[in-house]
Amino acid sequence: MMVRRSFLAAGLAAVALPLPALAAALPRLQVWREENCGCCVGWVDHMRAAGFPIEDNVVRSVAAARRRLGTPSDLLSCHAGLVGGYALEGHVPAAAVTRLLAERPAGIRGLAVPGMPVGSPGMEIPGEAPDIYDVLAFDARGGRLVFMRFRGGTSV
Rank of each mutant, 00 (worst) to 15 (best):
M1F: 12
M1R: 13
M1Q: 13
V3K: 13
V3A: 14
R5P: 00
R5K: 14
S6G: 10
S6K: 15
F7L: 15
F7I: 15
L8R: 11
A10N: 09
G11I: 06
L12G: 08
A14H: 09
A14T: 01
V15R: 11
A16P: 12
P18I: 04
P20T: 05
P20R: 12
P20N: 11
A21I: 14
A21K: 08
A21T: 14
A23F: 03
A23Y: 08
A24G: 05
L26S: 10
L26V: 13
P27A: 02
R28M: 15
L29C: 13
Q30V: 09
E34L: 00
E34K: 01
V41L: 07
V41M: 10
G42T: 00
W43V: 08
V44E: 01
H46N: 12
R48E: 13
R48N: 08
A50D: 08
A50E: 04
F52Q: 10
P53C: 03
E55A: 15
D56N: 05
D56T: 07
V59L: 06
R60E: 15
S61A: 14
S61P: 06
A64F: 04
A65N: 02
R66I: 03
R66V: 04
R67C: 04
R68C: 06
R68G: 07
P72Q: 14
P72T: 10
S73I: 11
L75G: 11
L75I: 01
L75M: 12
A80F: 02
A80G: 10
L82K: 13
G85T: 05
Y86H: 03
A87E: 02
L88G: 00
H91P: 01
P93V: 04
P93L: 14
P93I: 02
A94R: 09
A94V: 02
A96C: 09
A96S: 07
T98W: 10
R104D: 09
R104V: 01
R104M: 05
A106D: 14
I108F: 11
I108T: 14
G110I: 06
L111Q: 06
G115V: 00
G115F: 03
G115R: 08
P117N: 03
G119Y: 09
G119S: 02
P121Q: 01
P121S: 00
P121W: 10
G122A: 05
M123H: 09
E124A: 02
E124T: 02
E124K: 04
I125N: 08
I125R: 12
G127L: 11
E128P: 03
P130G: 00
D131V: 11
I132Y: 13
Y133N: 14
V135A: 01
L136Q: 04
L136I: 11
F138R: 03
R141G: 08
R141P: 00
R141T: 05
G142M: 06
G143D: 09
L145N: 08
L145G: 12
V146F: 01
V146K: 10
V146D: 09
F147W: 01
F147R: 04
F147T: 14
M148E: 12
F150S: 01
R151N: 08
G152W: 05
T154Y: 14
S155N: 09
S155R: 11
V156R: 01
V156M: 07
V156E: 12
